[in-house]
Amino acid sequence: MDSVFEELYQKYHHDVFQFLFYMVRNKEQAEDLVQEVYIRVFKSHHRFEGKSSEKTWLFSIARNVAIDSFRKQKGWKGRLLEKFDWSSSQVKDEHPIPEEITIQKEEIKWIYQCLDHCTVDQRSVVILRFLNDLSITETAQALGWTESKVKTTQHRALKVLKKYMELFNEKEGIESEEVRVER
């Protein structure tokens, strides 16, 4: 095995995988994408000049890989199939909730589903900041943004999450009230 690969795997594999999984919300796809990340890393490793930290560089590549995969999914094939496959447009359940999430408490399940409503940028920020525990500065580096853009995007993302979390909350409230009435 390549020593570069070994080093990268040791240090960052699980972080990168975590990020990719929450971006695409599909384990198999995340597995494919993480490989793609390594391929891109090997292709451009010589170009890595240490301007940014290795960690943020890897995350920026992972983000690009994720975005490319979204684009690929929405290629001409996807659009064509969408036109003909009416069943999928009616019942939309592309992201089954993985086992790791379902065994968690209710709120975690909600927030996992709420992430779906964020834009790709918002989701990237949320995942990098809170799931990967990157600082504002690191996130800015990984995304190639200014720190203030990171902050506003994070703020907006939380707002979206809050809005949808409240919807879940209300539903829950109604259900629990109904339960009480029956009693």
Binding site: F17, Y22, I101, L131
Partner: peptide, 9 residues
């Protein structure tokens, strides 16, 4: 969000 489970490869 921080409590969300770590997904392992």
């Amino acid at each position: 969000l921080r409590e969300m489970p770590r997904i392992q490869d």
